[in-house]
Design a protein around this nucleic acid. Structure first.
Lengths: 138, 138
DNA sequence: CTGCATCCCTGCGGATACTG
DNA sequence: CAGTATCCGCAGGGATGCAG
């Protein structure tokens, strides 16, 4: 590294669209994906649709459905329909999904651990920013 | 876990808006944040604006500026202006940012490692989906 | 070189209503 | 309960131009 040239050799630098890895990064780099994966991994057992819905404050039914279908499509979540009445559908992480769930977990842990530092930095920044513009009055 | 009740006790389940940890999760759960952090951590040294720009195919100047300012605001990236001509600005990870960079790195590695599995699952899903709707012709 | 401002448009994502 | 469909607002984010 640091040869003076812009070095590729990492996911981040690989050309444009159809780089598979970037596609996957962009799957994970999603708010609701993080929440859903994090919750499923935290719960440690299959969860029903509305159970998941209720456990994730702020998520709408649309976003949950959409997110779950994406994750199912990508093989990270397994959807099981029990032919009962009323219908019962359970979602659980696949083996691959469990790995992704660990990442979501790590993100959650790190966020919780450093939230105060980050919010503090944010306040500092905002204060300094406003302090450099208003001290003069015409 | 699995007490039968929806259990809180994790970042994902904490109430609504002003939960600090959730705010931070949503900072990280961002495509360009991942790319920028991943690249800075990969490069291992301060990077200039356009160097960063060129190293991240597809990013626009607006998004890069915006992302960098966010990260600076949150104390994850440090911005240093060298009073030369032409102006030279360098960005590097802060200690806190370096930790976040490790997460981005992990995401990148995992994505690269499992991209094929995920894309395969995706194709399977799409094939099965279309196969269940078109077999009949009027 | 760095980066702010403006225009503008697509699509994310929220609310609501309806089926199986 | 689970899920689809529709409407729609708004902001994310691309393109371009200008300034320090």
């Amino acid at each position: 590294m640091g040869t003076g040239k812009d070095d590729p050799g990492t996911v981040w630098a690989i050309p444009p669209e159809v780089c598979p890895a970037r596609t996957v990064v962009e799957v994970l780099a999603n708010k609701w994906v993080m929440y859903v994966m994090g919750m499923l991994r935290h719960h440690g057992a299959p969860m029903r649709f509305n159970q998941l819905r209720r456990s994730l404050p702020g998520i709408t039914q649309k976003m949950l459905t959409q997110t779950l279908r994406m994750l199912e499509r990508d093989g990270l979540v397994c959807r099981t329909v029990h032919p009962t009445a009323p219908p019962q559908v359970e979602y659980e992480l696949t083996p691959l999904g469990r790995e992704a769930g660990e990442i979501a977990h790590a993100v959650g842990e790190w966020s919780a651990a450093h939230a105060d530092e980050i919010l503090a930095a944010r306040r500092d920044f905002d204060n300094r920013a406003s302090g450099e513009l208003e001290p003069v009055s015409p």
